[in-house]
Write a protein that binds this DNA or RNA. Structure first.
Lengths: 225, 225
DNA sequence: TAGAGTTGGATACTGCCGCTGTCCAAGTGG
DNA sequence: CCACTTGGACAGCGGCAGTATCCAACTCTA
């Protein structure tokens, strides 16, 4: 398949495909002439993944390049390759959300952070997530969880680890399913691609469930009016 | 408190506060002279909410204006006011993620959509979420859930409603807690603000838990290497 | 083989968005 | 009294995801 067909089958404008090629999000096609390249099904698959990362996941192009760099790095072992790709996914839309006001506020923020840290520690201990506990100092997901809990605490919502535990257990079941799914693919690259896609697409579903539950509870409490 | 102090206590640059005033995200202060205004604690609170919506929630300024418009509309009943504010929160970062390739792909997408619709229907039926079932045709959250499930299905991940049910139940418990928290505030405006903030800040926490669970499972399966 | 169309490649531009810097005349405060 | 601040207006910036244009070299079709 050549460029025009790739664009047609993927629904992505040719100018945009050229852009992705330039940015290294898409490997160049196989050269079959000085000014002609042939693209395969794997290009189509990759193009769909890129679009999903950017449009569903909301990742900036630079981040996509980083993630795909790990996905494609065949010199890495599977664990590292998968871990690196998943860690490269951004943890929060905008990590610069902290306030930097006067001293009292900074102190407030630190208190919340400390408390959140302790809460997460108790949570992972009660769950027996030993790997997570070992990785805690360097794991972006761990930092992200602490930051989110601290933010909630700062607006006066001191969430307890006991309330989080059931979610955590469920998330672990979800992770098991995701990994099972991932292992149905043959090539390591496809496996990691599948894991990234699943990790990313599951989250909007969770968010939607959360909002639906809010709707239900709102109507139950206050009626439909 | 005057402009300079508001900027200092919130940590938001004065130029930015002026921008928010211009954009209508922040009510003007109380005029105490032809060129002087006084700002109160509610301005500080609102400013923090605006920052949280933009930086933690990733909302564009226009969306923030829309949400706050409902939060502030005292002519609305509480149900409507709350519902409108929550519905105005964006459901997906980039809702334009669909592909529009050739006919075969469109058909594929429709199949996935139909299947997802049925799955969600069975889910809400089994949960007894009657309000959600009634609101389904107009609820953005419902549409969003269907879209997310359809996207997963399209990449070959036909999630069953049984697997979602425990999440949904948990989310309902979460919603109950959120509403309890909301009701600890006196003024309706503060209540709705609290609900919006809680709805928004809970989601990053869930995502972080999901990713931590992935880490744990990855190490359990493939070791730390 | 002629002529229309496509290719990879380079470069410059667009539009949106969240600010940010500058300027101003009118007031304020020590 | 005079430096400073205020509300207000407006232009500009920097980043980002594309998009448009042009090109010479090539390929396909008639």
């Amino acid at each position: 398949m050549r460029l025009a067909e790739l664009g047609e089958r993927s629904g992505v404008p040719i100018a945009t495909i050229k852009y992705y090629l330039r940015e290294g999000l898409l490997a160049p096609g196989e050269r079959i002439g000085p000014r002609t390249s042939e693209y395969g099904e794997e290009h189509l698959r990759r193009l769909r993944l890129v679009r999903a990362l950017i449009h569903v996941g909301g990742l900036p192009v630079a981040k996509v390049r980083e993630v795909l760099g790990f996905v494609d790095d065949e010199s890495l072992g599977r664990t590292i390759r998968l871990g690196a790709a998943l860690w490269a996914l951004p943890q929060e839309p905008h990590p610069d959300g902290a306030s930097e006001g006067d001293a009292s506020q900074d102190a407030e923020a630190d208190d919340a952070h400390e408390a959140a840290l302790g809460e997460v520690d108790r949570l992972t201990a009660s769950l027996g997530w030993e790997a997570v506990r070992q990785l805690a100092p360097i794991s972006p997901s761990h930092a992200s969880l602490v930051a989110a809990m601290a933010a909630l605490r700062r607006i006066g919502y001191p969430w307890r680890s006991e309330l989080l535990a059931p979610h955590a257990e469920l998330m672990h079941q979800v992770a098991v399913l995701e990994f099972d799914f991932m292992e149905t693919f043959d090539s390591a690259t496809e496996q990691v691609e599948a894991a990234v896609a699943a990790a990313l697409l599951f989250e909007p579903m969770l968010r939607a469930l959360h909002r639906l539950a809010q709707e239900e509870e709102s109507v139950r409490r206050y009626g439909m009016s």
